[in-house]
């Protein structure tokens, strides 16, 4: 127990980074995932193909490789930098890499939601003169979102836990990195291990319950 108390603040500092990464990746992946699904259902073949290729490549690549590619490929080789402070730069490289990865899953969850919206809804939308984008944003996506809130919750839970591989993208300040640092100096400690597990559960369990509650509350009655 002593080591958990001793290193607690250091680990909590790391855990705060996990939360910050999750917020960045959560917001961006919901937006970009929506853009992706719009591409995948659009009447334009080029957009559909681009969306499909993106999802299939990113969804089937291990996250550690996506993050390594963000750090080595985009940041180091192509010189894409978000900040001159290396630590801040790494934070954004990992946050955006995680968002890019999670977006593919958000897209697919939403696409299954679109499939639950009866075809008649789209036909009615078109028949009053709405354009494709209007039908999508006013009629189809709002109903699709409501039907996949619970699965989206699962995607978000997975994403929150995925913040622990930030190290793969060169960001060495999260809870998992800090834990490893502590273990390297003091040896493995079960209380520390369990403490971090509990910290994650304190965040992910409410996310699960909240999205489940929201799904019931916002369900579209047909």
């Amino acid at each position: 127990m002593d080591e958990l108390i001793q290193y607690g603040p250091f680990l909590a500092e790391g855990f705060l980074e996990n939360i910050k990464l999750a917020l960045v990746a959560g917001v961006i992946s919901l937006i970009f995932g929506t853009v992706l699904v719009s591409m995948r259902v659009s009447p334009t073949p080029v957009l559909r193909a681009a969306g499909t290729i993106y999802v299939n490549v990113v969804r089937n690549t291990p996250l550690t490789l996506v993050l390594a590619f963000s750090a080595l490929g985009l940041s180091d080789t192509l010189g894409l930098t978000f900040s001159t402070v290396p630590r801040v730069n790494s934070f954004w490289v990992v946050g955006l890499g995680l968002a890019a990865y999670t977006s593919a899953f958000v897209c697919e969850a939403l696409r299954s939601g679109i499939n639950t919206v009866p075809l008649g809804q789209a036909e009615a939308a078109r028949s009053i003169g709405l354009t494709f984008m209007q039908s999508l944003t006013l009629i189809i996506l709002p109903q699709a979102f409501r039907s996949v809130i619970a699965p989206l919750g699962s995607v978000m839970i997975a994403m929150i836990k995925n913040t622990t591989v930030a190290t793969a993208g060169g960001y060495l300040a999260d809870a998992a990195a800090n834990m490893k640092e502590v273990f390297d100096t003091t040896g493995a400690s079960i209380p520390i291990f369990l403490g971090i597990v509990l910290a994650f559960m304190a965040v992910t369990l409410p996310v699960g319950y909240f999205t489940g509650w929201l799904a019931r509350r916002l369900a579209v009655v047909r």
């Binding site: 009447p43 009866p118 008649g120 036909e123 078109r126 028949s127 009053i128 003169g129 354009t131 109903q143």
Partner: peptide, 25 residues
């Protein structure tokens, strides 16, 4: 055939469906 011109045409032709198709939300 498509696009905004088609949407504009549809706005001038009302349609009532067998299954009503009111926007459920």
């Amino acid at each position: 055939a498509e696009g905004r011109a088609l949407a504009a045409l549809r706005s001038e032709v009302g349609m009532v469906f067998q299954q009503f198709n009111l926007f459920a939300h």
